[in-house]
Design a protein around this nucleic acid. Structure first.
Lengths: 223, 223
DNA sequence: ATCATTATTATGTACGTACATATTTACACG
DNA sequence: CGTGTAAATATGTACGTACATAATAATGAT
């Protein structure tokens, strides 16, 4: 059923921008129940191929922006999955009780009472990614007791905190001397970086993290 | 219904790794139909929170890898949406009739009879992204007649070719002299790059494209 | 014991019906 | 002529039932 609709879209029987017949009519034409049509169309809408509005009907989207879903794995798993040895090292840990302003790209995030952690994740002994993280300990008080020399904040947070919204920026930066030393590359090398903020369901800021990957790293996404 | 299940997961009533009761039992407990439970669980499974296997039952996923869906817009729309003036310029266009080997990261892609295009997309007159594209003209013969001085291959392909699978790699590279000149930055600057291959439903390679963004670009993703 | 066959079980998909809800269109009223 | 209210319409969600399918467990023959 879903495939039948997909075929029509591909065959341009229903071209981009076209308003499809209503569910009842489609059901009649295909000789199936409306609920089946509903499921099929809804699924395609989820995938970004159709646009649906109550009373307004269903139409094929004009510019089918390719929708990619990609996974942000726990770094440990990412490394172990590729068959390499994982190693984690805490570099520094500070508790900042004053209000902090953390510059992130254009915006500035406000956090008070933060835990600042720098840690290095290695793969087969080679530096893999440098984790630079701020955790708001008012929102996540348990973080004060966590032993981040044994478990990475990355893993700890994912396992402790229920999922939530967030924001992710990807960019290329020039390696600073300090980072170059830790990541064993030349100062000035281009490095892949992700900057991420995460908030909970009440939209309170939980954590801000910058990940700076080793020189030559490519992030892979399935489409 | 979906929310009720979500609450239980958040409340760790059903902790990560837990095997949920079967749909029939859940339906009984919540006082609703199994089909309703099925829809709710399936939806959560799509979002990556649950793992389901026939006969095996449903369980809360152990390491909830955050699943981000991000859109790959037509560059033109991306620029115009931010209120800037879009400009497109074809830099070069060659038809290569011999077999080509196009190195992409670790792998090498085989294409025969390819059209190679270089083009620059600008925003308010500033270089935005450099498009370096190969199109297999055996698979997409219409590309030979398309006028890529008027429409970008990016836009043309999205509108002509039905969606398909693909592969996307994101990385940071060091600006080469030639690219630096086009993108108006210094040679050696770190640049954000995406490398993408796209194939059709028969898994034939359609196009390979490298996009190199201006110095300082950050790709943004909603989580 | 080993392997092929047959039950069992939980999810996957479809049906048909009913009612809810958002949105537009039509109509009546001032 | 505008305005508020009611009808019409298409999707959204839920119900209960039926059968398909994949994966596992139990069974029986060799």
């Amino acid at each position: 059923m879903q495939n039948a609709v997909l075929k029509r879209i591909h065959a341009r029987h229903w071209a981009p921008g076209t308003l499809l017949p209503n569910e009842a009519d489609i059901a009649l034409e295909f000789g199936c129940a409306r609920s089946t049509v509903n499921r099929a169309l809804q699924s395609l809408a989820d995938k970004g191929l159709l646009e649906r509005r109550r009373r307004g009907g269903t139409r094929v989207v004009e510019h089918p922006e390719r929708v990619a879903t990609f996974k942000i794995p726990i770094i440990r798993l990412q490394i172990e999955r590729s068959g390499c040895d994982y190693h984690y090292q805490l570099l520094s840990q500070n508790h900042l009780t004053q209000k902090q302003k953390i510059a992130r790209g254009q915006g500035v995030q406000q956090m008070g009472d933060t835990l600042h952690i720098r840690a290095l994740h290695s793969s087969d002994g080679n530096p893999y990614v440098l984790e630079d993280r701020w955790i708001d300990t008012r929102i996540v008080p348990a973080a004060k007791e966590a032993d981040f020399s044994a478990i990475s904040p990355n893993q700890w947070l994912v396992e402790q905190i229920p999922f939530s919204g967030g924001d992710l920026k990807l960019s290329a930066i020039k390696a600073k001397a300090a980072d170059a030393k830790v990541l064993k590359c030349q100062a000035g090398d281009p490095l892949f970086r992700t900057e991420r903020t995460t908030w909970n369901t009440e939209r309170e800021l939980i954590t801000v993290v910058n990940l700076t990957y080793f020189h030559g790293y490519k992030m892979q996404v399935e489409l």
